[in-house]
Structures are given as C-alpha cells and as structure tokens.
Design a protein around this nucleic acid. Structure first.
Length: 833
RNA sequence: GCCCCUGUGGCGGAAUUGGUAGACGCGCUCGACUCAAAAUCGAGUUCCGCAAGGAGUGCCCGUUCGACUCGGGCCAGGGGCACCA
C-alpha cells in the first residue's frame, strides 16, 4: 500500500489549513516568551528568485522551530517597495510605478505562499503605501524638530540628458548608465541626517553585538573609521592675502612633525578658494584638479598635482618655513581638508615631494644608529625610534606622539583629536517613486516641516515620465501649497527620501502598527529587538548601519527604549549556478544549453556564479515547486552547503531532495505498531533530538539535515519495535520545521490530533545521550593501530593493559617496551615507543 | 596599498576544550528486483599497495605523547575599504 507523496495536493491543503486557522499569527498579548525572527524584506522586482527562497527557508525553519519550542513567534513579511526599477519600468513600458510595483507584490506574495512559509501575513506592509510612508514622514518631522536633520549643499552626479541625479553605481566610466551622457558634478541643496552624532555610539555598540558575524562588525568598524591623531595649526607667512592667517591640519602621526617639508590643502579648502578669487592661475589649477573621473582606477593612476601658493611657519620653530600647496590628493571632507607632508614616512607625500623636489628627511628609524640610513625608494610608514627630531630623539613612536600632543596642548597650537570616516547620511533623492520629504519651502519662513495633522504628504498619481527629470518637480499643482507657518504661497520639497530610510524602521512597524502613529512603544518593545535577522551580506554596512542609527535616533528623542535593533544577525550565502555560452560567446539559459547539447551543438560550460539575469544562469523557483513541491525545494536549500556559504543549484541536488521527501513519506507509512524496546535506536533518536536542536539554534541547517539522514538510516535498519514506532513519530516533529507539508501529511495519516506545526518539540532524555560502551582508539606514537570497545568510565589501568596487550600494538613494538603510555579516559590510548 | 575570511576525497561538506580525519549527501562501481527501464533495496568507494603496510586536511618549519585544530613564514582563491593624512 506504499503510495507516493503528492506534493501538489498536500502543499495546497496544508497551506489552506494554516491560513484558515491563523496558525502563524503572532499575538501581542501572548503570555508565552516572545521571539522575533525576521528576514530582510524583498524588493518587489517581479518574481521570487532562488536567493529569496534560500533566505526565507532559513528564517522559516527557525521560526517554526521556536514555535514548537513554546515561543510566541513574530515572523512577518513585507515589501521594500520604493525604488528606481519601478521608475525605469514606467519609462520603458509606460506603466505607472505604483501599478507595476503592486502587480509584482501580488505575484511574489502568491509565490511565497506556495513555499509554505510560516508567516504572519496579517502584518504585511509595503513601504510605497501612504499608511507606511506617512508614518515615516512623521518620524522624519520628529527628527527634524530634534535637530537631527539639516540641509546643506552637496555634490551629486548629474546626468544632463536624463536631467537626474545618479547614484555612484549608476555612473559607468564617467557616463550615465542609461543616457550614456558625460556625468557632471553639480552642487545641490540636500537633506542630511546627523548619523555622525552617533558615530561613537554606533562604534561602541558593535561590541555588544556578540551574535553578529565578526566580519560584519569589522566592516562597520572600518566604515565608521575612528582615527586618533592631532589637529594643529600652522601660521601663514602671508597674512595680507585674504583674511585667513592660519591653516589647521590633521595628522595621525604627530611624532613625525620634524619630518615635515610642506603643507597641502584641498582644492575645495577655503584658503584655496580665497586665492582662486584673486588669481586666474589658481582658479585654473583648481578646475584642473576637479577634472577626471572619480572611479577607483582613475584615482589610482592619477598624477599628484600641486600649486604653491604661500608659506607657513613651523609651530615648533619660528625660523622654519614650509611651502603651502593646493594639492589634488587632499580630500576636503576628511579631517580638516589640509595636511602637512612628511615624505619620508608617507607614500603619497613621498611621491609629491619627489615630483616637486622637496626635502625628504628621515625622522623615524629602526634604531637610533640608523638616523642617516637612506630610504629605499619609497616611504617607510612603520613605527620605530625617533631620529633627527630634536627633543623627540630616541623616543619610540607612541611616546613621541604623546609628547608632541602634550606640547601642542600646553603651548596652545594644537590638540589631540579624533576624526571619523563616517559622513552624515544624505537622504535626498531627486526621484518620484519614494517617500516625499515632508518639508515646505517658504520665502519668509524658510524650510518648514509639514504639521503632523497634514500628513501623509501623498505622492500624486497623475504623473508622466514622457519628459526627463523628476515628475514631482514639474507636476502642475502638487508642489504649490500654503506655508504651514505663515499661510503664504510656498512650495513643497520635491525630493524624496532614500529608500534606505524606508528599511531603517520597518521591523518596528511589523511589531506594532497602529493607524494613528508609527508604532506603539510598549508593544514594539515587547517584541524588539529582532532576535534573529537573516539576509544577504551586501547589506552588511549601509542598511544595517542606518537601521542601527535610526533606532538610536528614535531612542534619543524618547520614542523607543531600545539599544540595538538586531540582536542576532546571520548573513547567508548566495545561490549560484553554472553559466553556459554558445560558440559565439552568447550566454545561454540552462535549458537552452541542454537543448543545444541535445541538438549536437557545442556549448561551453562557464564558471559557477551568482544567479543573475545578465549571465542567464537563473533558475525560476516556481516551475521547480510545480514539479517537486515546496518541501523538496526547501530541503535542497538547507542541505549540504553551510548557510553562510554559497549554494550551487543543481538538477541532481533537487532530485536528491525530492527522493528524500519521498523516503520520509515511505518511512512514516511503513511504520507499524510493535512491541519491545530497541536501546540502540532510542539512543540514536535522543542524540538526534539534541543535535538537531543545537544545530537549528546555531543555524547550521546542513548539519541538522545530516542528523536527519542518520536517523532515517538508523530507523530503516532497525527491526520493528515500540522504539522504532516512537522514533518514526518523533522524526515527523523533527523534520516539521524544514519540510512542513510532508510532516503534516504524515502526522495526520498517523492519526495524531492537531497540527505537527503546533506540536511540542521533543525533549531529549539526558540518560539516553550517554553511551554505556565506548570505542577507544589505540595509537602507537600517535598513529592509529586498532580500536577496542570498553565500558564507559573503565579504569585507566584496565584500558592501558588492554592496549599494551593488543596484537597490533605488539606487532608494532616488536618486543620493545613502551617508554610511556598516555590514557585519555573513554577516548584513546597512545603508546610512546 | 590597508584590513579580513577561506583552503579537507571525483564533488558539496563533517570533525566539543588539540585526542579514531573524511560523518551525511551527491556521484561512481558491483549486485538484487524487472522482459526492460524508472523507482527502490544491498555492498563498496581518500590515495598507493594483491597484502602486510604506508602516505594523507594548500606548501614549508615549529610546539606536543598526539595537530584539520595552536605558533611562525609562504602560496592560492574570495570579500571589504581605498589618495582617509
């Protein structure tokens, strides 16, 4: 009566049962301990891809496991629904971005449902709807009023043909990715969030995130980029030129102050600008510095350029003057926009000094007697002993740094200082499909926040993409409003918010979504922080940093009592697939490659790479679900590859997963009631229960899968017994988080009441985790010779005697007496010959 | 350039605090069932060797009774940042 598992029927049936029963709805009022499991919400690009399937399967296993462990689990889903692809689609296909986005959401939601994820759909949200972004506007207004939002001029990449601002990644070889026009740098007035106010906190907070990958914490640490050094001032020797009489520089190497041979300022530095105002030559030089691309490759090879404009006085020697240059390699937005050059100990300064014939004086050496050792054609940036440095001579680098800072502070020309790499977050986007920035510009009152009772500021629907530029800007009526403050004629801000703002607080809205405000602090706090957050490593810096900042900003204004938004973070690997090309070098879809091979044409198999449309190596999950059912796809996503590494999609892999789903079904069907206990199987079962729990909690799904295989092997080998029947029933609970449909089907077929999804996770019996007999390895000089079985906890002497008497040992010793015998109880004996 | 991660059979990968390397899966080989195939089941599968035995976790050194695991130095692949003073 063996039957095949029918996923088409079973999947639909159980999905309906779960949905109708509200099985996965999270209750705010629950008395059970709460657990919040979240995967990064998707952008509704059109269809679900394998990366989504892998991401959401992992989260689903954890969510279902925690439910069975007795937690009230919040596992929601929503849509990161604003963004450029919708506008691109609007331009290409003449559909409204909203229409396109909402259709994609409907498609993808249906696709997700077919995978049987244990999601609370009642909390679904889409960031493009006013009932989400309206609350975001309210939060923005709160931050604005708290002084965490400000406006400043900032350079953007401007595409003169599309009349739009481009993100850095949309500039390819200095040209707009769509128009191909040469990109200009333009200054626009833009809104910024004061993330730098929280730099120290964001850095310190990383130390508390012990459930985050070290890699991500390190990336954030580097991104925040705390640097300790000294700011100090050079007096200018030509004070008559402009009002500026000194230059402040920043350095991390105050110890090298006597190795200085020049001072350099950025072309954007006020001093450079002041000189440019009076000099054609300087103005022309600055213009030249600004030419050229900003790509990494161009900067790499860019020649160092300098123009000498003045002289500065060394702060430690009034008779020592240094040339002041405008130099193209000095950045205005790091430190003070000015440096002092120490060519012997900084490679950039070395190149600059070499080009302009400036002095290169060693001030750091490996030892005091190497003060005159010539440099080997490049700067030496390491630590050492100070030489040629007057009062610093003989001091080590760290002592010298402290000595210089102490002297500068005592004499008042400088002070120890911390500089951050982190910049404030520019959130203005000159686009339509985003959250309107709730600000009104009034000639009399300036920038005025839209009062909360006038929120949301809703995006107009009647827009056109026929002409380039921001449709909000040229909409006939939308931007014209009365000033909320004085009532006079005013205009709305037509920029929209960076979509990273939308994703900076959606996890709070999932936890609590009242209609009249962004969230209820009490309810939100009852769920937060997110206990386990799962997503791609590509969000390691920006999204995660912005969400951490946003949380702190809300805490700062007293809206939420939460230190960190994400307690545990897991970054999963990508789903990859082999690429194929035909003989003309065109990428082929996997099925095209198959067809071509079948037709006898030559196909070149390329590298295994991340699934991408451009390489045509994608596999659409939906037909796979049609063919094998949700469980096989889920099982494959969890098998073999560790979740943090890439997973290669393969036909063989999904076939294997499908076979296992059927094997589970056969095992459950063939289970018959029988008498008698099977101690070996009992042990295996309880060891498996313990191991799977540990592995799921560690998100080591590949190991949990291996545990299940081992148990299945043991069950199939075991003769009928009461233990065997128990093992089969228990196994259905153990696999339920991973392959929930077949588990429900088998659970119901076995006559259990209720859903396996609601069943309690089995408890491992500690007594059964311990073996009473162990295998002990017998080594000679660390090389394995034999193994023996012995009672657990057997006396050392007894084991040692057995080992020495062992035939293989005797053969190896060849009559010689052992020099030493090491016995590790219950593990091994090593005989040193 | 700076910072970080990874390297184990034909393949994906296992291996508490150093203690039997290769669990589990894929693939492959042989066998059973079948007219045949699929599905399923059984046996085997790191390498060399008929065997006894030996070698083996990117390479070289070291610590240790014992090293995939710890230390030093290389090599290869991947990632992050980057004219950041």
């Amino acid at each position: 009566m063996a039957s095949r598992f029918n996923p088409t029927k079973a999947d639909a049936h159980w999905q309906t049962v779960w949905e109708d029963g509200g099985t996965f709805r999270a209750s705010d009022e629950s008395g059970r301990p709460k657990s919040y499991v979240l995967e990064m919400f998707p952008y509704p690009s059109g269809r679900i891809h394998m990366g989504h399937v892998r991401n959401y399967t992992m989260g689903d296993v954890l969510a279902r496991y925690r439910r069975m462990k007795g937690f009230e689990v919040l596992h929601p889903m929503g849509w990161d629904a604003f963004g450029m692809p919708a506008e691109n689609a609007a331009m290409e296909r003449k559909v409204h971005p909203g229409e396109w986005t909402r259709a994609n959401i409907a498609t993808m939601k249906a696709q997700l449902k077919r995978l049987g994820f244990a999601l609370d759909w009642s909390r679904e949200l889409a960031t493009c709807e006013p009932d989400y972004y309206g609350h975001e506007q309210a939060l923005f207004v709160d931050l604005f009023e708290a002084g965490l939002v400000y406006r400043k001029e900032s350079e953007v990449n401007w595409d003169p043909v599309d009349m739009t601002v481009l993100a850095n990644e949309q500039v390819i070889d200095g040209r707009g990715w769509r128009s191909g026009a040469l990109v200009e740098r333009r200054k626009l007035s833009q809104w910024f969030l004061k993330i730098t106010d929280f730099a120290e906190e964001l850095l310190d907070g990383l130390a508390t995130l012990d459930q985050w990958p070290d890699k991500v914490r390190l990336m954030q640490e580097n991104w925040i980029g705390k640097s300790r050094g000294m700011k100090f001032r050079f007096a200018l020797d030509a004070p008559e030129r402009g009002a500026i009489s000194e230059i402040e520089v920043y350095t991390t190497r105050p110890d090298t102050i006597f190795g200085a041979s020049f001072v350099a300022v950025s072309p954007d530095h006020p001093l450079a600008q002041a000189y440019a105002a009076n000099s054609e030559e300087v103005a022309a030089f600055i213009a030249r510095c600004k030419q050229g691309g900003t790509t990494a490759a161009e900067l790499e090879t860019a020649e160092k350029l300098g123009l000498e404009i003045a002289e500065a006085v060394h702060p430690l020697d009034p008779d020592w003057t240094l040339p002041v240059f405008i130099a193209n390699f000095v950045l205005m937005d790091y430190g003070t926009g000015a440096i002092f050059g120490v060519p012997a100990h900084d490679q950039r300064d070395f190149e600059f000094a070499t080009k302009y014939g400036l002095e290169i004086q060693r001030v750091v050496a490996a030892s005091a007697d190497q003060a005159d050792k010539p440099l080997g054609g490049e700067a030496e940036s390491g630590d050492g002993v100070m030489v040629n440095s007057r009062f610093l001579d003989g001091k080590d680098t760290e002592t010298a740094k402290a000595a210089v800072i102490a002297r500068a502070e005592a004499e008042g020309w400088g002070e120890g200082s911390v500089v951050w790499r982190l910049r404030d977050w520019g959130v203005s986007r000159q686009r339509y499909w985003g959250t309107p920035i709730p600000i009104v510009h009034c000639a009399g009152c300036g920038a005025v926040a839209v009062p909360k009772d006038q929120l949301p500021v809703i995006l107009p629907e009647d827009i056109d993409f026929e002409t380039p530029g921001n449709p909000l800007e040229r909409h006939p009526t939308w931007k014209h409003v009365a000033c909320p403050s004085c009532g006079g004629a005013a205009v709305r801000e037509t920029d929209t918010l960076d979509t990273f703002v939308d994703s900076s607080w959606y996890f709070i809205r999932f936890a609590s979504q009242p209609g009249d405000r962004p969230f209820d602090p009490k309810v939100a706090a009852s769920w937060l922080p997110v206990n386990q957050y799962i997503g791609g490593v590509e969000h390691a810096i920006l999204h995660l940093l912005y969400a951490r900042f946003w949380t702190r900003a809300l805490k700062h204004i007293g809206m939420i009592d939460l230190a960190e938004p994400f307690q545990g973070l897991f970054t999963q690997g990508m789903v990859t697939h082999r690429t194929y090309k035909d003989t003309d070098g065109n990428w082929l879809l996997p099925e095209e490659a198959e067809a071509a091979k079948a037709a006898g044409r030559q196909v070149e198999a390329g590298r295994v790479e991340k699934m991408s449309k451009s390489k045509r190596n994608t596999v659409d999950p939906e037909p796979i679900v049609d063919q094998y059912g949700a469980d096989a796809v889920r099982w494959f996503m969890l098998s073999d590859s560790p979740p943090e590494r890439d997973l290669e999609w393969s036909e063989a892999g999904i076939e294997g997963a499908w076979k296992f789903v059927n094997r589970l079904w056969r095992i459950s069907e063939a289970s018959e009631a029988a008498e008698g206990e099977d101690k070996t199987l009992d042990r295996k079962l309880h060891q498996t229960i313990a191991a799977i729990g540990t592995n799921i909690e560690a998100l080591a799904f590949n190991k949990a899968v291996a545990n299940i295989y081992e148990l299945a092997n043991a069950i199939e080998k075991a003769p009928p017994s009461a233990s065997r029947a128990t093992s089969v029933a228990t196994m259905m609970r153990l696999v339920a988080p991973m392959v929930p449909h077949v588990a429900e089907e088998a659970w119901a077929a076995a006559g259990h009441a209720g859903l396996v999804a609601d069943a309690a996770w089995p408890e491992a019996d500690p007594a059964l985790l311990i073996e009473d007999e162990v295998t002990i390895a017998i080594q000679v000089n660390g090389k394995l010779k034999d193994t023996i079985r012995a009672a657990k906890g057997a006396a050392k002497e007894e084991i040692e005697a057995m080992a020495v008497a062992n035939a293989a040992v005797q053969r190896t010793l060849a009559g010689a007496a052992p020099r030493k015998v090491i016995v590790v109880p219950d593990r091994l004996v090593n005989i040193v010959a």
